[in-house]
């Protein structure tokens, strides 16, 4: 996916994204890091066709022009939102079945069971999503996202609300997702991007201010870009 000069706004006089360029290679993990208000969630919402106030010089997916809310692109990506209270009256298994139906796919039950076990979610499979804690609700949406194995997985602040073990599992799954496609995830936790990403984008003032790859992905470099000294940025 290649996007040139993306501008987005909530009120036309104040742009949140100010001409952002973004390239996502196939089968890679891209971490997006930035301070509060940098525009991470706005970027995620634009990418999944949920934000109307935007313009873009060019947008290409698989070498062809595309629209963020077009059915072809929708069928290739899934997003886990930072805050989500959807489908509260489904239990996890019903939600998973429904989402797979939407994508016209059948779940790989063995793989789903593995994900459920790794996240320690087994005893909550039958509980209505609305009755789950924040962390367990997040796990339900994450497991669904990883189980779909779509070409593009978008995760908005996926670490929030997860316990220590689930965070470790998440890092491992993000790093291993390259087998199926590309992950773009936003975070304000430094270790989450340094431990998993092939490429780190530092979002600042509505543009990608710095890009780090390979050995350049170090806590020191990222702290320096954001002008912070602490572990959490």
């Amino acid at each position: 996916m290649d996007i040139r000069s993306l501008k987005a706004w909530y009120t036309p006089e104040k742009h949140v994204l100010k001409g952002l360029d973004l390239t996502l290679d196939e089968h890679s993990v891209v971490g997006l890091i930035g301070l509060n208000g940098a525009g991470k969630t706005t970027l995620m919402n634009v990418l999944c066709g949920l934000h109307d106030g935007f313009e873009c010089a060019s947008q290409q997916y698989g070498g062809k022009a595309f629209t963020f809310d077009g059915n072809d692109f929708k069928g290739d990506r899934y997003i886990v939102f930072s805050e989500d209270e959807s489908f509260g009256y489904f239990c996890f298994d019903e939600y998973l079945t429904y989402v797979f139906d939407c994508y016209g796919k059948k779940p790989d039950k063995a793989y789903v069971d593995t994900l459920v076990e790794r996240f320690g979610f087994g005893e909550y499979r039958g509980v209505l999503i609305k009755d789950l804690s924040l962390g367990n609700r997040r796990k339900a949406y994450l497991i669904t996202g990883f189980a779909l194995k779509l070409p593009l997985l978008l995760l908005d602040e996926p670490v929030n609300g997860l316990d220590f073990n689930s965070t470790e599992t998440l890092y491992s799954l993000i790093a291993g997702y390259k087998e199926f496609g590309t992950v773009l995830f936003s975070s304000h936790i430094l270790e989450s991007v340094t431990l998993t990403s092939d490429k780190v984008l530092v979002l600042e003032n509505g543009v990608i201010a710095k890009t780090y790859t390979g050995s350049g992905i170090t806590p020191e470099n990222i702290r320096a870009s954001l002008g912070t000294e602490e572990g959490n940025v």
Binding site: C48, G49, L50, D69, N71, K74, G75, I79, F81, D84, S86, F87, V99, D101, C102, Y103, G104
Partner: peptide, 8 residues
Amino acid sequence: RKLNALPS
């Protein structure tokens, strides 16, 4: 939001 993000 979720319905708009999902296909079909």
